[in-house]
Design a protein around this nucleic acid. Structure first.
Lengths: 217, 217
DNA sequence: ACTGAATTCGAACGAACGTTCGAATTGTCG
DNA sequence: CGACAATTCGAACGTTCGTTCGAATTCAGT
């Protein structure tokens, strides 16, 4: 885990070093169940009673682990996003070819997306549900992730056909990838690697090809 | 308007032909305000009291025009989606070049999206909020729209490089386009035609180029 | 087994929710 | 103006919401 979940503990609660792991384990369990409920019903549509039922803990008991429903969503989003960024950085290390680095970016995103569909849907679909400092902290991670992708594309631009807007290209790529939560069906669609390959081909050809498309508008 | 809004009138309500237009005008007003509120707060997050405040009509008064909050969302989604499909069909008429037809598809989608941002966000973001027959009716329109796009791509495939999955390509294109509601900023970003041009270049190059991308995975 | 801390819970709080209903108001037309 | 339909509204309905609190239970170390 990227962020020690213990950091979420309610302020005035005492903490013994020995029980830290038990607390963390239980919190992680709750977060997993809550992720499923938020995924199924949406953040606003999911009630604390839904979360209580799904996680098998009493309504009041949940509040021992976090002080509000909003903070719960925040913990899910922050943990999910931190993890995907951290994994990306690890995978990019030692790879220098610009094109290969973009393929890694896409593969990392889609692999994590499909392996953690519920969490990623909550991250994508409930992006506007948080407010103030909660929203700001998640937005900061999102900005870092976005900047990394911009960097990858700018590197590619330095080598090849330079005639496209980096902003539009990056945001188009994010759209292609994130939209997957609306359509992916494990019984019909191939695995993450195949889809990442298809999207990588589509995107990289679109961005690197030097010849102009026929019938310019 | 594609669908006569009168169709929404509560079943047992009497109707005089003379007042039909007044009723329709008022309903359209309410729909517009409701669209803004749903866009800002989400369907679940928006309360009937929010809609009442925004539209300047009393809480009870709203129920003269529709029988439930869910039906209100349905009316918005159906009207929006029907309109975009209808406009697309009109624009495609008489154009035969497969590539040009896809460019028209993209332009139509993005122009309508940016001209009706709130409605399109409600359509994209609240796709799962409706249930049963409401959901089925909107899903039918979505399927038709999807099939049209598949047809356009298959036509293109017949001419040029055939090595891509139509399903993945179409859904990637939808992702690129629909994701725009998460990032478009009229103070920073160009107009719909420019963005449609960029995305059209990106997508069509990605889909038509015959040479394989270097460094095959 | 005892003890103090960590964890869980039943019950309740006030607020806000979607919806209803009968009365009041407005518009239409002879 | 009178009469009937169309439209609007205040007030309230029962339910569910997120959250709190003090008591009960479970756990860990001796």
């Amino acid at each position: 885990m990227a962020t020690p979940l213990t950091a979420a503990r309610v302020g005035s609660q005492p903490r013994a070093a020995a029980s830290a792991s038990r607390y963390d384990r239980r919190l992680a369990e709750i977060l997993t169940h809550a992720t499923d409920v938020f995924c199924k019903k949406g953040y606003e549509g999911a009630s604390m009673r839904d979360l209580s039922r799904e996680s098998g803990m009493s309504l009041a008991g949940l509040y021992y682990y976090f002080e509000s429903k909003e903070r719960l969503l925040f913990l899910i989003q922050k943990h999910t996003f931190s993890t995907i960024v951290q994994r990306l950085k690890a995978r990019l290390e030692g790879v220098n070819d610009p094109e290969e680095r973009i393929r890694i970016f896409i593969l990392n995103h889609l692999e994590y997306f499909l392996a953690n569909q519920a969490a990623m849907k909550v991250l994508s679909h409930e992006a506007e549900a948080l407010k103030n400092s909660f929203a700001a902290e998640v937005a900061a991670i999102k900005r870092e992730y976005y900047r990394i992708c911009v960097g990858l594309l700018d590197d590619l631009k330095r080598d090849r056909g330079p005639q496209f807007s980096t902003r539009i290209a990056v945001l188009s790529l994010f759209g292609m990838m994130n939209w997957i939560y609306t359509w992916h069906n494990p019984r019909v669609d191939a695995d993450a690697a195949s889809i990442a390959g298809e999207m990588g081909d589509l995107f990289l050809r679109g961005v690197t090809t030097e010849t102009k498309v026929r019938k310019e508008r």
